[in-house]
Simulated assay, not measured.
Amino acid sequence: MRCIPISLSTLVLVTGAAMAAPPPTQPPRVAAEQLLIESPANTDIGGSASQRFAQVFQLPADGYLSHVMVPANCASARVLRVEIERTTAGVPNGVVVARQDVPGPALNAYGYPVPGMRMIEFIQPALLSRGEYAFTLTVSALRRNEYCMLWLAPAGDTYLSGKAYFIARGNPPNWIELFDAAGTPRDLAFQVFVRPL
């Protein structure tokens, strides 16, 4: 029988690979949510104003980000991009820790009077430590008529652990807290799911 020599570096690589822990297989659990939706209060993601939205949320424990749910209908958008960002002083700071693009037609179901929550599943779940994050919603429109319709939460601070923000053409190029016409803050309707460790 012929023996094949194994170098020390090969042994270290094999041993290291065997010790790497796979992502957990536990079912995802709701880590943050605000379920109230007001009808017919809706707005556009993308469109002529190139609007973007963000919602700051708190993760109570470490885990793998599984998916985000939002009440959106994207029949007119090519792609809806959802990013998870870190925050500074309660505002998204542009440091992206997870990203997922979803074809607009996949989010085309429409209920009455609101579309209901649509799932954006992260193909590569990010391991996040407990703390504050934000998800952002973007449609990169090549044409002005590319947009997703987004339904909003009722007026008031319906999610106490974070605020909603927007950016739109014609306003300063930074995140602005989301208010209704009467100057009352609004949050987004959402759910964030995490697979616990």
Results as ranks from 00 to 15, higher is better:
residue 75 A to Q: 11
residue 150 L to V: 13
residue 14 V to L: 15
residue 119 M to L: 10
residue 55 Q to Y: 00
residue 113 P to K: 09
residue 75 A to H: 03
residue 81 R to E: 15
residue 194 V to W: 00
residue 132 E to K: 03
residue 49 A to M: 05
residue 115 P to N: 04
residue 126 A to K: 03
residue 44 D to S: 09
residue 183 G to V: 02
residue 50 S to Q: 13
residue 59 L to K: 01
residue 163 K to H: 14
residue 34 Q to K: 12
residue 159 Y to V: 10
residue 172 P to F: 05
residue 126 A to E: 07
residue 25 T to S: 14
residue 51 Q to L: 00
residue 177 E to H: 00
residue 21 A to Q: 14
residue 140 S to F: 06
residue 117 M to H: 05
residue 28 P to Q: 13
residue 29 R to C: 09
residue 149 M to G: 07
residue 11 L to Y: 11
residue 122 F to Y: 05
residue 26 Q to F: 15
residue 10 T to R: 12
residue 182 A to Y: 03
residue 169 R to I: 04
residue 148 C to P: 04
residue 158 T to H: 06
residue 44 D to N: 06
residue 13 L to M: 10
residue 172 P to R: 12
residue 190 F to A: 02
residue 16 G to M: 15
residue 83 E to F: 04
residue 156 G to T: 07
residue 133 Y to P: 03
residue 181 A to D: 08
residue 82 V to P: 11
residue 109 A to E: 10
residue 43 T to Q: 05
residue 42 N to V: 03
residue 115 P to C: 01
residue 180 D to T: 04
residue 128 L to R: 01
residue 166 F to K: 14
residue 128 L to Q: 02
residue 1 M to A: 12
residue 158 T to M: 07
residue 189 A to S: 14
residue 26 Q to W: 15
residue 137 L to W: 02
residue 90 G to C: 11
residue 58 Q to W: 04
residue 92 P to I: 07
residue 121 E to I: 05
residue 76 S to K: 13
residue 150 L to A: 10
residue 98 A to Q: 08
residue 16 G to K: 12
residue 150 L to H: 10
residue 163 K to D: 15
residue 55 Q to S: 00
residue 55 Q to E: 00
residue 71 P to G: 01
residue 55 Q to C: 02
residue 2 R to E: 05
residue 165 Y to C: 08
residue 107 L to N: 05
residue 171 N to F: 13
residue 173 P to E: 13
residue 117 M to P: 03
residue 150 L to Q: 12
residue 17 A to F: 15
residue 29 R to H: 11
residue 173 P to R: 05
residue 106 A to S: 13
residue 26 Q to G: 15
residue 119 M to G: 02
residue 149 M to W: 08
residue 14 V to Y: 15
residue 17 A to S: 15
residue 4 I to N: 01
residue 123 I to P: 03
residue 159 Y to K: 09
residue 136 T to C: 09
residue 40 P to S: 08
residue 166 F to W: 13
residue 145 N to F: 09
residue 168 A to R: 14
residue 37 I to H: 06
residue 172 P to G: 07
residue 154 P to N: 05
residue 117 M to I: 03
residue 114 V to N: 12
residue 72 A to H: 01
residue 75 A to R: 12
residue 44 D to Q: 14
residue 124 Q to M: 09
residue 19 M to K: 14
residue 120 I to P: 12
residue 103 P to N: 09
residue 47 G to E: 00
residue 40 P to I: 07
residue 86 R to Y: 08
residue 139 V to P: 01
residue 128 L to M: 02
residue 145 N to L: 09
residue 80 L to R: 04
residue 136 T to L: 05
residue 130 R to M: 02
residue 36 L to R: 13
residue 82 V to F: 02
residue 93 N to F: 08
residue 3 C to Y: 07
residue 58 Q to T: 04
residue 148 C to N: 05
residue 31 A to K: 03
residue 184 T to D: 10
residue 62 D to E: 01
residue 152 L to T: 11
residue 104 G to V: 02
residue 4 I to A: 06
residue 185 P to N: 00
residue 119 M to I: 04
residue 20 A to T: 14
residue 193 F to Y: 14
residue 47 G to L: 01
residue 177 E to M: 07
residue 88 T to Y: 11
residue 42 N to P: 01
residue 123 I to L: 10
residue 72 A to L: 12
residue 74 C to A: 11
residue 179 F to M: 13
residue 2 R to Y: 04
residue 172 P to A: 12
residue 34 Q to D: 10
residue 184 T to L: 09
residue 144 R to N: 11
residue 24 P to H: 08
residue 129 S to L: 06
residue 66 S to I: 00
residue 12 V to K: 13
residue 169 R to V: 05
residue 56 V to Q: 00
residue 151 W to T: 06
residue 132 E to Y: 03
